[in-house]
Design a protein around this nucleic acid. Structure first.
Lengths: 202, 202
DNA sequence: GAAAAATTATAACAGTCGTTAGATAGAAAA
DNA sequence: TTTTCTATCTAACGACTGTTATAATTTTTC
């Protein structure tokens, strides 16, 4: 189907990836229940039945996307943190915010699809996704605990609430269009400034 | 249908309100596309066709719920602000956060349904909902401008970003279960402390 | 009580849903 | 070329969708 293709990658993998990509985009815009297999097939220049050569069901296709959504964010953040393992705790938090936000707004829609569709997906799928999330949650819990242990975060700040606040700020950006001129990194820095130094005059 | 009913309220209005309430609850849990009229009817101990006596279409029913969702939050916040019109700008912000969060987590699901379903609703409905949102956005813009004009918010803090951050923190609480023991008001206070004084040691 | 009005149920419509089995085309291997 | 495997299409299945016209029922009015 694609005109140009590296010799070492199978058509199978290319089509599979295309289906995943375009389905993710549809999921972001239309949601889980409103996106039909025929919608997906049309976006891939295919027929609905052909999708079953690559995926055993609609839910299997969706679940793979949403799972990859979390995993992409987690591995991007983890990679950035590993490259600065000896930095100051709060710097690590700031970088994690930047990478999280950048991954959310990059060209692919996997992470956005996860955020947009998570709560409306069938119960058993959501249960499995929740397990996948937990690993990423632990990354953040560790980051904030380290910063508080180092005395950089005030002792009376509840870390769970702080984590809610940070992730909420970042993920909620999907609901707005970011101010033109301010990329994800710039926005993340502004959020960092608000959450850690506060919006008030010091 | 309901066993007990005040003498001065019409059966029509009671049924209509019940349909709205229960549909809102379904929308929160299942989303727009996955909630069928037969689901709704069953939740109301009715048949799907009977819903058309009260609403001219599924979308009309949904739109009324989502619109009321914003309006409830706005009027609750506005009412609280009117009762403290001469308070310090930041106190007004803190109270707005509390009322917003409390309305989001009260027994009715209108505001939650709006937040959960907004992005997956048909395009024309979403356009109209966006107009409704604008009025509430203006309330927040005014609140923050006043606080910055009074010198309570640092001059170099971008107010649009701050608004994103605050609304994002508050609305994202729908995706977690709030820490047991901390009600909406307590959580709002913690968020206020984070956003305005910062999580760092001063 | 009967008559009128308001509210819900019934049953079907055309269309779409996820899914499947089998046919078909294309590329790779022989 | 012939054969074999890969990838997609076709056409249909039963179930479900929003919606409608009409009938039945309940509630209110007299």
């Amino acid at each position: 189907m694609p005109a140009i293709r590296r010799a070492d990658e199978k058509l199978r993998d290319v089509s599979r990836r295309m289906i995943l990509d375009r389905t993710a985009s549809l999921l972001v815009r239309q949601g889980y229940g409103t996106t039909s297999l025929r919608d997906i097939a049309q976006a891939c220049d295919m027929k609905a039945g052909s999708l079953y050569y690559h995926f055993e069901s609609k839910d299997a296709l969706v679940e793979e996307i949403l799972t990859e959504g979390v995993n992409r964010v987690e591995s991007a953040v983890q990679k950035a943190l590993d490259a600065m393992f000896d930095a100051a705790p709060l710097d690590r938090v700031r970088v994690a915010m930047e990478v999280h936000l950048r991954t959310l707004h990059d060209r692919s829609d996997y992470a956005s699809a996860h955020i947009r569709c998570f709560s409306h997906v069938p119960d058993d799928m959501r249960r499995r996704l929740r397990r996948t999330r937990r690993s990423y949650d632990a990354v953040w819990a560790g980051l904030l605990e380290a910063a508080q242990a180092a005395g950089d975060i005030a002792a009376d700040v509840d870390l769970l609430t702080l984590r809610f606040a940070i992730i909420g700020m970042l993920n909620w950006t999907l609901e707005w269009r970011l101010p033109s001129g301010a990329g994800p990194e710039e926005m993340a820095d502004r959020f960092y400034r608000i959450a850690f130094q506060g919006a008030c005059n010091a």
